[in-house]
Design a protein around this nucleic acid. Sequence first.
DNA 1: TTTATTTCGGATAAATTTATCCTATTTATA
DNA 2: TATAAATAGGATAAATTTATCCGAAATAAA
Lengths: 144, 144
Amino acid sequence: MFSKACEYGIKAAIFIAVNSSENNRVSPKEISEEIDSPQAFTAKILQALVKNNVIKSVRGAYGGFEIDKDKIATIKLAQIVYAIDGDGIYNGCGLGLHTCNENHPCPVHDKFKVVREELRDMLENTTLDQLASDIKSGVSFLKI
Amino acid sequence: MFSKACEYGIKAAIFIAVNSSENNRVSPKEISEEIDSPQAFTAKILQALVKNNVIKSVRGAYGGFEIDKDKIATIKLAQIVYAIDGDGIYNGCGLGLHTCNENHPCPVHDKFKVVREELRDMLENTTLDQLASDIKSGVSFLKI
DNA sequence: TTTATTTCGGATAAATTTATCCTATTTATA
DNA sequence: TATAAATAGGATAAATTTATCCGAAATAAA
């Protein structure tokens, strides 16, 4: 469904959110250990999230990644997916047609629309704080 | 959502269905031209569909690919996707966790479940003849 | 101001997916 | 039986995604 990069990005953002809510800045090393991902690759993905204003980086000694506490509740899964995988999941044709729309639909256009709307809905109505709180309470997990 | 191979596979199967309903056997060349896909790669995908009993191949002169007329209405999109992409889309974790289930869920487990069920539903309730008839009536298209 | 720490970013490598090529095998027809 | 036409399948190449490495730039603290 999502690229590996996007999976890492989502998990990393959740982990950062959990820590930022406790005023704790984290490094790529800590992140990749907690979410079980390759460190250098994860660092690249973090850069993309920084560029897209999903997370904040602080360079230099005692630096790391964080999210403004009061922003955690406003960040949607959709923003993370968009930052890493782009808008293909929303706008791309299910069968890869270049031109696929109501007037010139691919064979599964209508059927896919339902699924895609469901997905879009989910991504746009799920915020980082919801996901982070489940991690904090031990209801959900970031690895294994 | 699906791999390129799977996209080609779905389109190829629809094209074969359209032709088989008119007692017309088709070649990889015709198929790849009609669905705008690389010929040799498409041929490989057709082999996978043959192995999984989605389509039938006839070797030798005057050979080609076809689907038993009375089988077209029974073939579900799900079978094609399974033959090419496997069951990852059903069973895989949205965030790539090896162990992700009700007892040990990833952060988006419940939210994803809804989308995945919608997708599964769609794939298991869409048959080749439905898709083929839209192509025949010019309502939907296989390329551009 | 120097040093240690840490992100940034470019270059490169490995793995996977996508795509091509060529030969073997099969089969209908002459 | 010989021939031509067609799928099967292995080997290989190209493209993309995933992953690693290393030096440059930034920054806090000594």
